[in-house]
Every structure is written in structure tokens, then in C-alpha cells.
Design a protein around this nucleic acid. Structure first.
Lengths: 351, 351
DNA sequence: TTGAAAGCGCTAACAC
DNA sequence: GTGTTAGCGCTTTCAA
């Protein structure tokens, strides 16, 4: 049994209240007493019971994090950023995995609610379209910050149409990457390198990430008065075999693309493999650039140009916003974290 | 304010006790009452307060995890395994990062103690040599399971030398990988492929992981009556540049090795790059095999042979052991999780 | 079948 | 400067 305030009080012949105050270094208590108490507490290996504390305050010094899947560098980096900021502020981090299932996400939120966490950072599942489960948190004073994945308009502040009943539409802070701009920039870069037949190798069309990046690609083509060619936009499942097939279909076109943008790591590596297998040179015959979260892009030949999310920073930022909210800040804030473009051998033609 | 038992009781004109029992489906309460209470609870959005519960029971339904660093596939996979098992058993997972610092680890343990977690799973830092901070947990009834990194003999059960005072030396369960055997097997594999000049590309000598894997390598050579050549054992920092240098020093030897074992991902990729840059063929001139936690080994040419830890399984196993301990199981158990060897093109000479 | 009341460890408002 | 006491939400004896 760990020592409690009661034990210390008994041993010292003081009241529990005095001991409590002394340990908080409350100047109302005589210095001598304070020191005696602290000393004794140390000797008795006293360790404050946060649970008792939390029962009064209503919240645990814990931040809950919900991610849609666990084993990726991206999310572990986001988590690391969150943890770093949280621990600075004296919060622990609890994390749960929704496994891209809306039901699980709902359940996770409920568990965290029951635990009375101080706040929640969430990256919603692909299925998530309603936000009632998060809205319910607002009523229990648990702030929420969304990270990495966009939340739809519906959850953003809506000007009240009926001024009478001030319907508070729940709205939350968010931290996201600028996917559209990132794809735009990558496309621009290829154009600057002299490429004119730029293809894009996408993941499944239903992913928002794919939609956004494709959007940036199309915009960049428009902005540079290049045609968007239907046959240069291909979709693939996110595995090597499908992606290699998809790349081959691009390379077999009558007018072969002179550049490929791959929307994630797997697609990027697959594209590289396929281009090489076709006996084509990178970047002279086909330039390559891709979105990536891994460092191995530097370990291959040629080194691969990439666009990277600042995942760690996204985690940090989300956590900072959340802590502000925990401290009473009310207004939702939307932060957009820029991506980083690293040009390497696979797309460096001109310079 | 979320509804409490009191609120429900008041609304229904029942006592708090009755409501509490009804929600636990206690058959002592009339079925009709039970149903009424449950119904009302749902309507009032009642959500049980775990903190209040925990104040009595003394423990939160939470498992604490301490890892030495965050952003690696290995640990995020271990964590995922832990979380999977924990959530099955109704526990949440709190994780903290010691950043390979003993002081932080100690602090993490303390925080978890204050939070009254139900149990702790830890992968100790490289600095950790004393276990007093974990031993202190034993006194507060918080079980500990070590994962991935070995704990020294000192913390294993020691037969009491003085039967009089039954000094309970704290000892903990553990789940580790069989590094020695893994390296032994990899070496054997190369020998079977006809290699006779097998070199090993190590990380910093102070790492236990390096010691163990080197040990397995040496044993395998002995067992096969091959000489251990001093010049075939090289150490490198874990970054591309150093590792490429180290590999080059191997390739420049008068008697060039015909195989290289790389002790982690980075070293493996570096070795591949260096061998290629020297115009040598893999595996015909130099065979390659390495310890790895990433999947990209399949995405390069040639595909790389690897030895992989079953990190997810390690996490699951650790969590299962911990839950057994939480449920009262006393005896420490030591589980060794076998590695998986995947032979790919980089070391397939004969078959 | 239900209620009253104690108590988990702590803090804070109110004495003195 | 220190003590007394109420109460956070819940479970669980003990009574009725």
C-alpha cells in the first residue's frame, strides 16, 4: 500500500489538510512544518494519487489520441510530436486505434469520455461522415482537435440562420497538411524541369488524400496551360503488384509520359521499379516524384524526389492547440502545415 | 455536466444504490426497475465515471507502455500489438517515451504510478542498469513486463541465500526476440549457400543488440569450423555515410568477403549501395542478408534477404502476460519470440 | 426488493 | 498557522 496523506498526517500528528497544504508549498503553512512534511513524505515514499485529485477536478491529466491505423511512420511521428508537447505540459497521452472503422472510433471516443480525459486529438476514419460522437464531447467540456485528415464543412462554424435559438453548431480546431498546394508545387516543379506529359499514379479514388492531390495536379496543369489528359491519370490499389501494372499501362501509352507523380511511398517505389524494368532511364526518360513518409527514398538509386508531410510538427501543433483549449480558449483554429519538397536525382533534369 | 447516478436516482425517485445496482444488472433488483433505470440512463446520456470507480478499486483500466523511442516501425508495431490485446480486455493504453534517457524513464514510471495504471510494459533504455524504479512498483501492486530489450540477470529470480528473511528480489516477466539464434541462422544460411568469407557489418559495439547478433554469428562460424576473421567484423554508426565507408573497407580487403550480414535496415541498404557502386554483383560476388523491420526490402533490386522480428506478436504476448499478472498471476514468465528469416534474391545463390 | 451510509484520497471553504 | 468538514461519483456492506 502506498502511503497516503492520512498516513503522513498520523505519523506527524498533524491534520490531513495541513499535510496537503504543506505539500503544495502553501505559504499559509509555517515553513518549518512544510519542510518537515516534505521530508517525511519523501521518507515514506509518498506519491500523490492523481485519481483522487481527478475525481474532484473532473479530469485526468491525460490527452486522448485516436488514429485510424497504427503501424505507419506517419502516425507514429504525429504521435511523437503530440507526446512531446503533452509531456511538457504535464499531460500523459493515451492512444487508441480506430482501424478505419467508424464504430470503433465511436467506441474510442466513448472510452475516453468515461476516462474523463482532458482533451482529444483525432484523425478520423475514412468512413467518418457524422460527428455526433465528437459533438457530444463538447457538452462534457472535452475539447477536440482534428489532425491530418480534413473535417467536412458541416463541422465548421456555421452562421446561425435563426438568430432566435442560438443553435451552437459544434466546431473544432484542426491541423492539416496542404495537400492541394503540395501536388500543385510538385507538378510545377516537373513543368519547370521541361516535362510536358506528366502523369499521376493515384491510390483508390475514394480517398480524400487522392482527391486533393489530384486536384492540385490538375490545377497546376491548368495554370500552365497544359491539357489534362484522361489517360495520364491512373488509379491503383496500394500494393506493389497493382502499382507496377498501373505504371506499365502508363509506359505503354502511344505518347509515353515523361514524368510520373506517385501519391504515396508504395506507389513511388513501384513506379521506380516498373520504369527500370522497362529499360527506361530516370529522370531522362521518365522523371519521378512522389509523396512519402519514409527515409529510404534516399537509399536507392537514383535517389527519389519527394514531398513530405511535417508529421511531427502536425502532432506538436495539434497538441498545442488542444492545450490552449483545455486552458479555456474557445475559438476554433485551423492550422495548415506546409509540406516539404525535396528534389533529388529522380526529377532533376535541368539543374 | 454529464448525468450522474444521483441525477438518475433523483429523476426516478430511487436511491443511488438502487440505480448503481440496476446498471450492473444486479438480479437483486426487480427486473422492471432495472429496465426502467437502464432506459432512463440511456435517455439522460449517462456515462459511467471511471475515475470515481478507480478511486475505490485503486487502479485505472489503463496499461502503461514505456518505449525508448517513438518513431520506428518496430515500436509502433509493438505498440499496436499491445493495444490490440489491451482493448480486447477493456484496457486503454497510455504510452510514454523515455528517449533513451534513464532519467526520463524513471520519471515515466513515476507518472504512471501516480496515475495508478493497472500495469506497465516497458522496453528499457540503453542506459538502464538499475531497476529500483521498477522494483518500487512491485510494492504498489503494479505488475511489470519487459519487452524487446533484455533485462539483466540481476532482476531475474535469485535463490534466497538467507532463508531467514525471505528477501523478495523483484523479478519481472519478459518477452524478447531470439537475437543470437537469428544471427546464427542467418550465418548458417550463407554457409549453406556456399559462402566461406562471411563478414558482419555491425552498429555501435555498446548496443546489446549488436553484441548478441555478433555472438550468434561467431557461434555459427565455430559450429561450422570456419575461422572468425577479425577484419571481417566491422563497426559503423547507424547512418548511410558511415555504413557505406565501412562496407567499402570490407570490399577493399585483399580477400574480399563473399557475403555480408548487416545488423539493421540502414546498414543493409548502405551495404547494398556500396556493393553496387563497386561494380560487384549481388549475390554472385557478394551475398547480402540483414536484420530489418521495414517492407521496402522487397521494393529494391535485388530484393533483400532479411531476418525480421515479430514485433506485433511481441507486443501482443507482452500484453497478455501483463493482463495475467493484473489478474493475480504471480510467477514471472520469460517468452522468447522467434524471428522470421526471409530469403530473397540478395542471398539466393544455389537454389 | 430497496435504502442509508461509509469510505476510496484529496482539496478547499470555513472555522478558530 | 492549523484543524474540521463537506464533497467529488461510485460501490458495497448492513439494515430494513
Amino acid at each position: 500500500m502506498p502511503a497516503s496523506l492520512k498516513d503522513i498526517a498520523a505519523k506527524l500528528g498533524l491534520s490531513i489538510a495541513t499535510v496537503s497544504r504543506a505539500l503544495q508549498d502553501n505559504p499559509a503553512i509555517k515553513l518549518q512544518t512544510r519542510q518537515l512534511v516534505m521530508q517525511t513524505a519523501r521518507e515514506m515514499h509518498y506519491s500523490k494519487n492523481f485519481i483522487a485529485n481527478s475525481l474532484r477536478s473532473g479530469q485526468l491529466p491525460v490527452i486522448g489520441v485516436i488514429v485510424p491505423h497504427g503501424v505507419t511512420l506517419f502516425y507514429s511521428s504525429v504521435l511523437d510530436g503530440i507526446e512531446q508537447e503533452a509531456s511538457k505540459a504535464g499531460y500523459a497521452v493515451i492512444n487508441m486505434n480506430s482501424h478505419e472503422s467508424f464504430e470503433r472510433e465511436r467506441h474510442n471516443v466513448e472510452s475516453m469520455q468515461q476516462l474523463h480525459v482532458a482533451g482529444i486529438i483525432a484523425s478520423v476514419t475514412q468512413e467518418t461522415e457524422t460527428f455526433d460522437h465528437f459533438a457530444a464531447l463538447a457538452k462534457t467540456q472535452i475539447p477536440v482537435v482534428f489532425v491530418a485528415r480534413d473535417i467536412p464543412e458541416a463541422s465548421l462554424p456555421i452562421p446561425s440562420t435563426s438568430p432566435k435559438k442560438n443553435h451552437t453548431v459544434p466546431h473544432f480546431s484542426s491541423v492539416t497538411a496542404d495537400s492541394v498546394e503540395a501536388a500543385h508545387r510538385a507538378t510545377r516543379h516537373l513543368i519547370e524541369q521541361g516535362c510536358r506529359r506528366i502523369a499521376i499514379l493515384c491510390g483508390p479514388a475514394r480517398l480524400k488524400m487522392v482527391q486533393e492531390r489530384k486536384h492540385g495536379y490538375i490545377e497546376a496543369l491548368h495554370d500552365n496551360r497544359l491539357l489534362v489528359r484522361r489517360e495520364y491519370v491512373v488509379y491503383s490499389d496500394i500494393d506493389m503488384a497493382s502499382a507496377i501494372d498501373a505504371t506499365n499501362s502508363l509506359l505503354d501509352l502511344p505518347e509515353r509520359p515523361d514524368a510520373i507523380i506517385a501519391l504515396n511511398d508504395t506507389l513511388l517505389f513501384a513506379a521506380m521499379k516498373a520504369v527500370k524494368q522497362n529499360g527506361l532511364r530516370i529522370p531522362q526518360d521518365v522523371a519521378l516524384i512522389g509523396f512519402s513518409d519514409v527515409e529510404y527514398v534516399e537509399d536507392v538509386t537514383p535517389t527519389l524526389s519527394t514531398i513530405e508531410d511535417q508529421s511531427h510538427l502536425m502532432g506538436q501543433t495539434a497538441c498545442q492547440l488542444l492545450i490552449d483549449h483545455i486552458h479555456g480558449q474557445q475559438l476554433p483554429i485551423h492550422r495548415i502545415i506546409p509540406t516539404i519538397q525535396k528534389i533529388r536525382e529522380s526529377s532533376r533534369i535541368k539543374f
